[in-house]
Design a protein around this nucleic acid. Structure first.
Length: 260
DNA sequence: AGCGATGTTCGCCG
DNA sequence: TCGGCGAACATCGC
């Protein structure tokens, strides 16, 4: 379940459970999630410790001695720390087994996530072409990211090269709360709207992190609770509409998010 | 039983 | 170059 707030939640979970412990072994249940040779993963990890983690967008970097592992969670990734003598969590693809008898499971149901290794996180981010982290960016970063962009706002928010971390659900929420139509062109925003959009991105991601990414517990006044057909806008009572943009499905309120 | 899905990537085309 | 579209990837759940 991984957009930025979920991945941030995974990061904090990993920090709370798995740092500074000796990794005694690695169990790979499905090599397809590895972007690098298995033996390289084993060599980098065995006998080492997770030292520190960093999240950029939807990517999680976990520092080892001299290099770090990169995790992406695709559409259905998760982490679970458990007693290794107990039953493995379902869909565990890679297990990091610690000397203390516990293990951290990298879970991927639909196989869209992966694990990689790099010795330079910043260079890796640059190589993939990720934009600034949507939660950590400052207003200046945001304005620069927008420069010269003419895409639909929804496409823009989903484009990880522009801003890293926002996915389909949060892009809908952000545009809803900012009162901006998903098909509004980015280069038609005035200064006030840019500032508003920036503030909403921050505010909604912050809230998402506070909620630990648990979408099922969002308040009724959020669009997130109404991203289905035949729903009514919690703000104005209009019928929520479904829209297709770049082959993603979005939801919005035609009255609150006027295209003008 | 078919379709859709919180993601990314690639090729095609304007 | 930018950006929209659609397909592809793998697999589960509704």
């Amino acid at each position: 379940m991984p957009e930025l707030p979920e991945v941030e939640t995974y990061k904090r979970y990993l920090d709370d459970t798995s740092l500074k412990q000796i990794i005694s072994s690695i169990k790979v249940n499905d090599e397809r999630v590895l972007k690098t040779e298995k033996k390289e993963i084993v060599r980098s990890l065995e006998g080492k410790k997770f030292d520190k983690s960093n999240r950029h967008g939807k990517y999680l970097f976990v520092d080892l001695d001299s290099n770090c592992i990169v995790m992406h969670f695709g559409m259905s990734g998760d982490l679970e720390y458990y007693d290794f003598s107990e039953e493995e969590p379902p869909y565990s693809k890679v297990l990091f087994i610690f000397a203390n008898g516990n293990a951290l499971s990298y879970i991927s149901i639909r196989m869209f996530g992966w694990i990689d290794i790099t010795d330079d996180m910043d260079a890796y981010i640059k190589k993939i072409g990720l934009g600034p982290d949507a939660y950590k960016m400052n207003f200046d970063d945001f304005q620069k990211a927008l420069e010269g962009r003419s895409a639909y706002l929804k496409s823009l928010l989903l484009n990880q090269d522009v801003l890293a971390g926002i996915g389909n659900i949060y892009s809908d929420e952000i545009l809803f709360q900012a009162g901006l139509h998903p098909k509004r062109k980015a280069n038609t925003l005035d200064d006030k709207e840019i500032k508003l959009l920036f503030n909403k991105i921050k505010e909604i991601l912050e809230f998402g992190i506070k909620m630990k990414g648990d979408l099922s517990s969002y308040p009724d006044e959020y669009l997130i609770s109404h991203r289905r057909d035949d729903q009514i806008c919690p703000a104005c009572g209009s019928e929520i509409q479904r829209i297709s943009i770049s082959s993603r499905h979005g939801y919005f309120c035609p009255k609150c998010q006027d295209l003008s």
